[in-house]
Amino acid sequence: MSEPAGPPNGSPDATANLRAGLRKLVREKPKSGGWQIGTRLRNYFLTGLVIVGPVTITLYIAWWFINVTDAWIKPFVPAPYLPDTYLPFAVPGFGLIVGFVVLTLIGALAANLLGRTLISFGEQMVGRMPIVRNVYSALKQIFESVVSATGPNQAFQKVGLIEFPSKGLWSIVFVTGETTGEVGAVMPGGEEDLLTVFMPTGIVPPTGFVCFLPRRNVLFLDMNIEDAAKVIISAGMVTPESQAKLREMAEQARRKQKG
């Protein structure tokens, strides 16, 4: 005698059994915790990398800068004034302190009449040298621009977007100020408000293009100079939003350690 056939696939009993099985699969937790442990270890490692990596690299760059400055300045300091002469170990950062003091004294000297006279005499001497005067003039303009950029009220401390290199493609630029002088006078539409912007390249950020364009073609951003530089140097991988997320992850890791 043959066994009785089960309920057909489309019957209510088969549908109920299928639903019960799906609910059981959803409610069941995986017995193996290996995957969860691996995920936690990966998250802990990435959090530790986010916290330790920037600090380590910053300390390494600072240590390298101090050593290079000491190697440049210490040979010009007489031995009786060096603490290394009296101590059994080298004192890092002494050359940096000496350099800071010397630059401050030179700046104070240049503020009075005698200092300005000496500087003017030295510039006249340099101006008579055919090749040296061009190099000195270019370097002086660069340093004056960098120093003036530290002012909190300067117009070039703004970040914007311009449509470059073609329509629909946008690039980050630093607005350096309003276009004046001969360039602003000879450009078409001289009555229009023109701006001078610097567009850095992604591969070598100190290099870039100087552009003159109407103010209406520049979209100003609330982003500061530091955040814009990070976006350019990291090829867009580091954004203010991602930095905020990393800070949030680091704060969560600290809370877990305290808890």
Rank of each mutant, 00 (worst) to 15 (best):
M1C: 10
P4S: 15
P7Q: 13
P8G: 14
N9I: 14
G10L: 08
D13K: 09
A14V: 14
A14R: 13
R19D: 11
L22E: 10
K24T: 12
L25T: 05
E28L: 05
K29E: 13
K29P: 03
P30F: 03
P30S: 11
S32C: 09
Q36S: 13
G38S: 12
R40S: 10
L41Q: 14
R42A: 15
R42L: 15
N43G: 09
L46D: 11
G48P: 00
L49I: 12
G53Q: 10
G53T: 15
V55Q: 04
T58G: 05
L59F: 07
Y60G: 10
A62G: 04
W64I: 02
W64G: 07
N67D: 12
A71G: 11
W72H: 08
I73E: 02
K74E: 10
Y81E: 06
L82V: 04
L82P: 00
D84G: 04
Y86I: 04
Y86P: 02
F89G: 00
F89Y: 14
P92T: 04
G93A: 01
F94N: 02
I97R: 03
I97Q: 02
I97E: 02
V98Y: 00
G99L: 15
F100A: 12
L103M: 11
L105M: 15
G107W: 03
G107Y: 10
A108W: 07
A108K: 06
A110Y: 12
A111C: 03
R116V: 00
T117M: 06
G122V: 05
G127W: 10
N134E: 10
Y136S: 01
A138D: 13
L139A: 09
L139N: 11
E144T: 09
S148G: 15
T150Q: 11
T150N: 06
P152C: 06
P152A: 08
Q154S: 07
F156Q: 01
I162G: 07
E163V: 05
F164W: 12
P165E: 05
L169H: 09
L169C: 05
W170D: 10
W170E: 14
S171E: 10
I172H: 02
I172P: 00
G177M: 07
T180W: 01
A185I: 04
V186T: 14
G189L: 08
E191R: 13
E192A: 13
D193R: 12
L194P: 00
P206V: 09
P206N: 10
T207W: 06
V210R: 02
C211R: 05
L213N: 06
R216F: 08
N217K: 12
N217F: 07
V218Q: 06
L219D: 08
N224Q: 01
N224M: 06
I225Y: 10
I225H: 07
I225K: 07
E226I: 07
D227Q: 15
A228W: 02
V231E: 04
V231D: 00
V231Q: 01
I232T: 00
I233T: 06
A235D: 07
M237A: 15
V238Q: 00
V238G: 00
S242K: 13
A244V: 05
K245Y: 12
A253L: 04
R254M: 14
R255E: 15
K256W: 13
K256N: 08
